[in-house]
Design a protein around this nucleic acid. Structure first.
Lengths: 197, 197
DNA sequence: AATTATAGTGAACGAAAGGTCACTTGTCAA
DNA sequence: TTGACAAGTGACCTTTCGTTCACTATAATT
C-alpha cells in the first residue's frame, strides 16, 4: 500500500509512452511493470487518457520550473572556454538524464496527436533553447566575448545543430559518444567564427 | 476492380500512419478511406505489418533513387545568390510535397519502434542533408564562393538549422510562412559569414 | 462458351484492449 | 476496539482490433 503509487504510475507511463507511444501502451502491461493489477491503476487515474493528461501537466510544469524562467539559468559565461564547458555540461545532462530523454521521446511521438504535446515539443526542441542562448549571447556580446551580431540569429544557428545531435542520441544511443565529440567540435568551430579575439 | 488498389492502399497507409502512427491506425478505417471493406485489404497485403514493411521498402527505395546518388543533385551553385535560391527551392519542395511531409512524419513517429525507420530517419534528418551540402560547399570553396573551411562542418552547421525549421513546419503548419522567411534570413546570414567577398 | 484467376463482400472469430465492480486488506483516526 | 477510508484484487463486461473464410462479381484466358 505504497502512498507513492500514483507517482510511480506516472513514471512508468512516461517510460512506456516513450518506448511504445500512447497508442502502443496498454494498461495491463503498465500495471504489471509496477507489480500491480490493471484495476489498481484505476484507483489512481480514471482512465488511460487521464494518465496521459497528468503526465503532460507534469512535463509542462517541469519545463516551466526548470527552463521557463531566467532564475535557473547559469550565469553568462565569462570566457569562451567557459561557454564551451557550459554547453557540454548542459548537453551531458540532457542526454544522460533518463527522465529528460523520455520526455523528449514522448513529445516526439505524440506531437501530431496532442496539441499540448505539440506546443511543448516546439519549446523543447526549438524556441526554448533559442531564447536561452539568445540571453547568453546577448550577455557575451556585452561582455566583449562575441562580435556584435544578432544574438537571436546566433542562438538559432548554435542551438539547432546541437539539438539535431541530441535527437540523434535519442534515436541511436550507441552514437552518443560520437555525437558529444561532434557537439564539442561544433562548439569550438562556432566560437572561432563568432568569438572576439 | 481497380488494378492500382495495392498502390492506393500504400498511399492511404502512408497518410494514416503519418497522422496517427502505426499503432493508432486501424485496418477498417484504412479500408473505409478507400471505399473498400476491410477484408479487401487482405487481398493485397497479408497483414497490417506487411503494409508497414511494403511502405518502408518504398520509402527506402524512394530515398535511394532521389537522394542517394549524386546524379539527381543540382549543380554546384555559381553565385551566392544562386546558392540561396537553390536552398529555397529545395526547402519549398520538401515542405510542400505532401508525400515527403508524410514520409518525415512517419519516420518521426516510428523511429523508436522500427530499426529500418530509425536508420532512414537519421538519413532524412541528418546525414543525408549533411553529405549533400558537404558536396556543395566543397564545390563552392573550389569555386571561390566560400572561404576555405571544413565543408562537412559547414554543411552540418547549415543544414541542421534548416532542418529544425522544416520539422517546425511539419509540427505546426500554420507557421510555415514564418519558417520559410526565417530559413532565407538564416541562409543570408550564413553566406555573409562564410561567403567570400 | 466455359474456365479460371482476381478483386471485392459481409459475416464471423479469437484476442486484446479499456474500463467497471463487488470484494478484501491494511492503516489510521476516533 | 471499532469504523472509515484508501489501496489493491480478480472476475467480468463491452468494444475494437487484426484476421479468416465462404461467397460473389468481373475480366481475362483457353
Amino acid at each position: 500500500m505504497a502512498k507513492d503509487t500514483k507517482e510511480r504510475i506516472l513514471m512508468a507511463a512516461l517510460d512506456m509512452f516513450s518506448k511504445k507511444g500512447y497508442e502502443g501502451t496498454n494498461i495491463r502491461e503498465l500495471a504489471a511493470s509496477l507489480e500491480l493489477v490493471k484495476s489498481g491503476i484505476y484507483k489512481h487515474y480514471e482512465s488511460k487518457e487521464a494518465i496521459w493528461n497528468a503526465l503532460l501537466d507534469r512535463m509542462i510544469a517541469y519545463y516551466g520550473e526548470h527552463f521557463g524562467s531566467a532564475e535557473h539559468l547559469p550565469p553568462v559565461p565569462d570566457s569562451l572556454e567557459d561557454f564551451v564547458s557550459m554547453t557540454m555540461r548542459m548537453v551531458n545532462l540532457t542526454i544522460h538524464d533518463e527522465q529528460i530523454v523520455k520526455t523528449r521521446k514522448v513529445l516526439t511521438l505524440e506531437q501530431y496527436r496532442d496539441e499540448r504535446a505539440r506546443d511543448l515539443a516546439t519549446k523543447h526542441f526549438l524556441t526554448g533553447l533559442t531564447e536561452m542562448f539568445t540571453h547568453f549571447f546577448s550577455g557575451m556580446m556585452d561582455n566583449g566575448l562575441l562580435k556584435k551580431d544578432d544574438p537571436a540569429m546566433l542562438a538559432f544557428a548554435y542551438t539547432t545543430p546541437v539539438s539535431a545531435l541530441i535527437h540523434l542520441c535519442d534515436r541511436e544511443p550507441e552514437k552518443t559518444e560520437d555525437a558529444i565529440r561532434k557537439i564539442e567540435a561544433f562548439s569550438r568551430h562556432f566560437i572561432k567564427i563568432y568569438g572576439k579575439g
